[in-house]
Design a binder for these strands. Structure first.
Ligand SMILES: [Mn+2]
Ligand SMILES: [Mn+2]
Ligand SMILES: [Zn+2]
Ligand SMILES: [Zn+2]
Lengths: 137, 137
DNA sequence: AATGTTTTGCAACCCCGTTGCATTTGGTTA
DNA sequence: TAACCAAATGCAACGGGGTTGCAAAACATT
């Protein structure tokens, strides 16, 4: 309990049941969460729409960031401490396990890539698919 | 002339109007195409479902490959010659222009990434967003 | 406790992609 | 060329996922 409300306060968000609960899901999970995951976990505690809006709010505040996956579904994970509202610093790579479906934020930073003359990058997403540590045995 | 029907024959596909037309769109375009793009180009020539099924067939045959984008929409682009049915070899990076929306297949190959112990990669997607050459002036 | 503001739940809606089935088309053979 | 069978198409219907408007409820502040 030491923390959840503080995180919300620090981001100038009013403290509500759904925000506390959803933020807690992220703090307890080691992988990323999709909207559907949260919907399952919470049962019928909140409306679907509330979950959508909460995720959206958390992204805007820099509490979580989105992860594009190769199967075209959006996942969310906790941001590092440096992220603030309107400006994310999540330049790490992501890993999506083909077996268990877990999505991990890895420590490795995105490598530099060579672009053609005249092209400039504003963002680089690296998503690796394969087998995670737990599923390799 | 010398091409479209040959490509279809080579992949053991029967030659139909929609397949010829959709394949032609890809050959004439320099960027990637989304389903919606093709739907607009073709007007009401074919049904939406036919476009979906044609794209799916082309992917299975290794004629086109999918590109995951950060805005969570699927785009398609012609494969290199080495791609065959069931096995793609599109290990190049992709670029998505924030201004004009064009998606390019770049020549640069995906760089090697460092994974934690026990993790193994089956596929790596690198999507760079930013400004393309045409939009940089 | 009373107030004004923010958040929530609900209903309705739209967009995207899929599926089943009858009809049409294309490829093959006689 | 005509007939046949297999494959592709069009149509309708369905479902998941996400958004919006608005009234009711919860929150922060006094
Ligand atoms: Mn991450
Ligand atoms: Mn490509
Ligand atoms: Zn796994
Ligand atoms: Zn551009």
């Amino acid at each position: 309990m030491a923390g959840i409300s503080d995180i919300l306060k620090r981001n100038q968000l009013s403290i509500t049941d759904s925000r506390k609960k959803i933020l807690d899901y992220f703090l307890q999970s080691d992988g990323a969460l999709a909207h559907a995951d949260i919907e399952k976990m919470s049962g019928d505690k909140f409306d679907r729409v509330t979950i959508y809006r909460t995720l959206q709010t958390f992204v805007e505040k820099g509490i979580i960031h989105t992860i594009p996956t190769s199967d075209n579904s959006v996942k969310y994970a906790l941001c590092k401490d440096e992220c603030v509202a309107g400006h994310h610093h999540d330049d790490h790579i992501h890993f999506l396990c083909d077996d268990c479906g877990t999505t991990y934020c890895l420590e490795s930073n995105v490598p530099p890539v060579q672009l053609p003359i005249g092209f400039s990058a504003s963002r680089t997403d690296v998503v690796v698919s394969g087998k995670c540590g737990k599923c390799s045995n």
